[in-house]
Design a protein around this nucleic acid. Structure first.
Length: 442
DNA sequence: CCAACTGGCGCC
DNA sequence: AAATGGCGCCAGTTGG
């Protein structure tokens, strides 16, 4: 086994504990973000940021986030209508479940649910939670429903109930966060995630509920700018895998192309069913997923899953090489680094080793994506000076701008041209959509 | 009664 | 060990 050394932070990098000193000087009036950086001190995972990156980008990002925390106006009566409609759905489903089951059940408690399914009804557990209990989460319930729909029709209602319940939870979350003017504020956290991602609870509002978030003024619209398949393109660029590069050059579908390569058939013969498999494997790679995970995800035998993975690496040799070399680097250097120098220390000693190696591999893509987002926020912010438009929100691979509706096409094109950078020879294309609320068009 | 934890779910 | 990375939030549960 390789000797694992614990190395000091690389030169030209600040250790997290130095951050507050720099930030405090620059950002006297934005105490919240100084605080955020201070939280880094208590982090168990060390993160390092390049000195110039910090000064050029991080503090500007902090200012931009502060501005975006002005937040959203919400349509209060729409929120209440949603709430009422979910409540009545829940009421009906509760009746339905009890009818089918013959007794009441507390669906909220997965423990009760698990007892019912795996003790009282004697079904065999499909999966366990980390503490060893039988999992009764939605995806398990769906598998059970598919197998036992005739015997246990209440399973269908339970799933619908859970779905409706998660929606009503989101409504509650919003209601709790409203200020006196019925505005909701993102509260971006940009310092806790080791990969550099910026987080806000608004990002994980269900899309259906996000539509209550509307522009500040009548006649304004949201411009949504999305990088398409950002992480996969980063993978293509960093690995220089010829199949990926060729595919992107020709503007072909990446997931279909993977299947086409793996099974040696022309791309136009790849069916949508197979494309799904290609997509699952592509993302599995980025997450460091292995055969057991893939077999659960695709609902196929373990052996089949392993064969798929083997075939994937056999067809995409440069990706395999990139993965192997990354692993070697993690082991010799002790940390994982993004394309722009954001590093995260890996804990490679002990039981977490395998997990840390997966995290390290994922850090490359997730972190590089996060770097790109941060730099782009800064560039966009500058480009929008003097325009009738403002940065509104961001979510990992998407940026939202609010602008006058008549100007939104034009501003959208401007923003798109700024976001569509070329990254190591790979273009990162952006899709533009205009919305009247935060989730859906029109 | 509160705080911390667990399991689950939402988004990317 | 969900043998898929990241986070935030909720309800339920447990311990003080």
């Amino acid at each position: 086994m390789n000797a694992i050394k614990k190395l000091p932070p690389p030169t030209n990098h600040l250790i997290a504990s130095e951050l507050p000193i720099y930030i405090e000087k620059q950002l006297k009036s934005h105490s919240r973000y100084i605080l955020c950086y201070k939280h880094l001190l208590n982090q168990h995972r060390n993160t390092f940021v390049k000195r110039d990156t910090l000064i050029d980008t991080e503090q500007r990002v902090a200012l931009i986030l502060t501005a975006m925390e002005k937040g959203f106006r919400i349509e209060f009566h729409t929120l209440m209508n949603l709430k009422r409609s979910y409540e009545s759905t829940l009421f009906n489903l509760r009746e339905e479940m009890q009818g089918k089951l013959g007794s009441a059940i507390r669906v909220n408690s997965n423990r009760d649910l698990g007892n019912l399914l795996f003790n009282n009804l004697g079904l065999s557990p499909l999966r366990r939670t980390p503490t060893g209990n039988s999992s009764a989460s939605i995806d398990v319930l769906e598998r059970l429903r598919d197998s036992y729909s005739d015997v246990y029709p209440f399973l269908k209602s339970v799933i619908e109930f859970k779905n409706a319940q998660s929606l009503i939870k989101s409504v509650k979350t919003i209601s709790k966060k409203l200020d006196l003017q019925d505005r909701i504020h993102p509260e971006f956290n940009h310092s806790t995630c080791p990969t550099g991602r910026i987080y806000s609870y608004i990002q994980n509002l269900p899309k259906e509920v996000r539509k209550v978030l509307i522009p500040d003024e009548e006649g304004n619209a949201f411009i949504e700018l999305d990088w398409s398949q950002q992480e996969l393109r980063i993978l293509a660029a960093l690995s220089q895998e010829p199949v990926f590069l060729d595919c992107l050059d020709r503007n072909e579908d990446l997931h279909k192309r993977v299947i086409s390569e793996m099974f040696h058939k022309p791309i136009f013969e790849v069916k949508d069913e197979e494309r799904k498999i290609g997509k699952t494997i592509n993302y599995a790679l980025i997450y460091g997923q292995e055969a057991p995970g893939l077999s659960w995800k695709l609902n196929i035998p373990l052996k089949k899953a392993q064969e798929l993975i083997d075939q994937y690496f056999l067809s995409l040799l440069m990706i395999r090489k990139f993965k192997d070399e990354s692993r070697e680097r993690f082991l010799s250097e002790g940390y994982s680094e993004t394309a722009f120098g954001r590093k995260t220390q890996l804990d490679l000693i002990g039981s977490k080793r395998a997990r840390e190696l997966r995290r390290g591999f994922n850090h490359i893509f997730q972190g590089t994506g996060a770097d790109i987002l941060r730099m782009t926020l800064v560039r966009l912010n500058e480009a929008l000076v003097g325009q009738m438009a403002k940065l509104k929100f961001c979510a990992h691979d998407a940026i939202y701008i609010e602008a006058k509706e008549e100007l939104s096409e034009e501003i959208g094109e401007l923003a798109k041209s700024i976001m569509e950078i070329e990254f190591k020879g790979v273009r990162l294309p952006v899709t533009v959509k205009i919305h009247n609320n935060l989730s859906m068009g029109d």
